[in-house]
Design a protein around this nucleic acid. Structure first.
Length: 615
DNA sequence: GAACCTTTGAAGGTG
DNA sequence: CACCTTCAAAGGTTC
């Protein structure tokens, strides 16, 4: 697979992760659903990257073990209630496995496209533009495509060449129709979702429908430039500058779009700005040199942040500067003023945003869907949902995003060689103010006695007891569990339950029992700390603390596993069964936020806490 | 109107 | 090396 020499930062995975992945990969076929379910999610996630990098020639053995749809989860706060209501109204589709009709494809929903007049499509209609899988490089594209077609099971989207997907209203699951029809008009009837990957495909459609663009697209004209524009959701922004060479066309987000019909894939912009996504990230030497020669500096002139259509590129944010347009003060420019202006302009250097990570990509594409399904608007709440759903994603699905994120980083690296995340730190660029430091949550700072991480808890010599993330130097999920507890932190709970974290450690009796205790102890106080006190009225607090989670937890545990830590420590044998139905067994942990989305959660309804109310 | 909230992941800095 | 901090998206909420 094409790899950029790219800084070591893009592996997305440490060696250990890779190893773990390899191990998993080798055994995956043999692993029963049970065992697969007990994998450490974090390990799995980290391995996804490797998988995505290596799976091109491996079969998607995981299809067989595709996880059951994410279980519903509950929420502590109003979010939960909202979700519950939404779920009631909407058949709980939200918590079904997110449809990825286009996994292999990248489909561009144009429903939200500003380019499309409302009348262009029926309200429910969406247009997805086909695109090739990122991993395909131009040269290999055709070959791989053909080959991929042979191997429908290949995890690599390569097998999808020019498909368009249809999704029919009412469909909420994978019952999407995929057609391997090249160069067909990518029209998708989409109920209400924004298709995944949406954000990633906003770059160009030139490859999508060469010579056969959807009629309705043709009619779309940029009001400003008068140039016909492709369907392109403005909100789905490309993260990198658009190429004038593709005026009216949205360049593909990632370089993997394969040029069709001999079209140059990523023309260099006339303004000297590099095309957002160099070919397939394979970025051959010529391209690299070309790019680097054209963009020696990591910062791009402000004007580059604008698409020729006048659409600002999201990745390059020109610091405010209320267009005090230069000409406005042209006459009054003294040398002194000019100096000042110079500095100003220096400061005005466009803000190059960080490339989105896998989760961000996922969020971006799924947010709309969640919003639609849950009728929630509050991002914080939505993000919580998305966080859990993220954990509930299957390996394949997550792998997709990890891969995309990796590509994003690679591309970003190439586009802005000198860029550093540090550049975006508060105060490093104009218009960015230092964030107020988040206050420590109640109990968080006080609880010095309780080790919050596996490392501290078990020590180096008991790493086998660590949770996966800790082993990978990531955020300790146990700590989170303890913290969120309320019932099990919605965040941890859901995720953990759905994809049990470090199973070994969690399953391990001694630590788990010990831990469960500590968690229980921490539970009460911590359960309320997820949100700053101000957000909860005293009554709400009470309500929350009164939440039966513990009782439920105990009950459920009594029936199930007595010793296992409530969080992800599902009994291996449990896991598989508990996924779908096991929700009941594992649910307890999420008692607090369990909601009506699950049939079994009826009893937990009382737990649904708080809504806006009171305040 | 800026910051916060909330999520995960990546990256950089610090000791 | 371990840990911490910041930022990325997003939009309602809070200050």
């Amino acid at each position: 697979m094409p790899q950029l020499n790219g800084g070591g930062g893009d592996d997305l995975g440490a060696n250990d992760e890779m190893i773990s992945f390899k191990d998993e990969g080798e055994q995956e076929d043999k692993i029963s659903e049970n065992s697969s379910a007990e994998r450490d999610l974090a390990d799995v996630k980290s391995s996804l990257v490797n998988e995505s990098e290596t799976n091109q020639n491996s079969s998607s053995d995981s299809e067989a073990e595709r996880r059951p749809p994410p279980r519903s989860e509950s929420f502590r706060d109003k979010t939960r209630e909202s979700l519950e209501e939404a779920a009631k109204r909407q058949d709980g589709g939200l918590f079904k496995s997110p449809p990825y009709p286009g996994y292999p494809f990248i489909m561009i929903p144009d429903l939200t496209s500003p380019y499309l007049p409302n009348g262009s499509l029926s309200p429910t209609a969406r247009t997805y533009l086909q695109m090739k899988w990122p991993l395909l490089d131009v040269q290999a594209g055709s070959l791989q495509s053909r080959q991929a077609l042979k191997d429908a099971r290949s995890p690599s989207p390569a097998h999808i060449v020019g498909p368009f997907c249809l999704e029919f209203p009412g469909q909420t699951d994978l019952s999407l129709h995929q057609f391997h029809l090249s160069n067909k008009v990518p029209v998708v009837q989409h109920p209400h979702h924004v298709h995944p990957l949406t954000p990633l495909i906003t770059y160009s459609n030139e490859h999508f429908t060469p010579g056969n663009p959807p009629p309705h697209l043709q009619a779309d004209v940029d009001p400003k430039t008068g140039i016909p524009r492709p369907p392109h959701p403005s909100d789905i922004s490309p993260y990198y500058p658009l190429s004038p060479g593709t005026v009216g066309q949205i360049p593909h987000p990632l370089g993997w779009l394969v040029p069709q019909q001999g079209q140059p894939v990523y023309p260099i912009t006339t303004g000297g700005f590099r095309h957002p996504y160099p070919t397939a990230l394979t970025v051959n030497a010529s391209m690299s040199s070309l790019l680097s020669s054209r963009f020696p500096h990591h910062m791009v002139p402000p004007h580059h942040s604008l698409h020729t259509t006048g659409i600002p590129h999201p990745a390059i944010v020109t610091p405010n500067v209320k267009q005090e347009s230069s000409h406005s003060d042209i006459g009054s420019l003294s040398s002194k003023h000019q100096d000042a202006k110079k500095e100003e302009e220096k400061k005005k250097q466009p803000h190059i945003k960080k490339p989105l990570n896998a989760f961000m990509l996922y969020m971006k594409e799924m947010r709309a869907k969640v919003v639609a399904e849950c009728t929630l608007k509050e991002s914080a709440a939505i993000n919580q949902i998305l966080g859990r759903r993220w954990h509930a994603l299957s390996r394949e699905e997550q792998a997709k995003y990890y891969e995309l994120a990796r590509k994003e980083r690679q591309l970003h690296m190439q586009l802005y060689p000198g860029w550093s995340a540090r550049d975006n730190y508060a105060g490093n660029y104009q218009g960015k103010k230092k964030k107020r430091k988040r206050e420590k949550q109640a109990g968080e700072g006080n609880d010095l006695s309780a080790p919050k991480k596996c490392r501290a808890r078990f020590g180096l010599d008991q790493q086998n007891n660590w949770c996966g993330p800790c082993r990978r130097k990531k955020k300790c999920i146990r700590y989170i569990q303890g913290e969120g507890s309320c019932a099990s932190p919605p965040s941890s709970d859901g995720s953990l339950l759905e994809s049990p974290p470090s199973s070994p450690s969690m399953v391990s009796p001694s630590p788990s029992s010990k831990e469960s205790k500590s968690q229980t102890e921490q539970m009460q106080p911590l359960s309320l700390t997820m949100k700053p006190p101000p957000l909860l009225s005293s009554s709400q607090h009470q309500h929350i603390s009164m939440a039966p989670p513990l009782a439920l937890l105990d009950n459920s545990r009594a029936g199930k596993t007595s010793g296992s830590a409530h969080n992800g420590s599902l009994d291996p044998s449990d896991v598989s069964s508990s996924r779908p139905t096991g929700s009941t067994s594992s649910r307890p942990t999420s008692a607090c936020h369990s909601h009506s989305l699950l049939p079994s959660s009826a009893t937990m309804q009382p737990l649904s806490l708080v809504t806006k109310s009171i305040d």
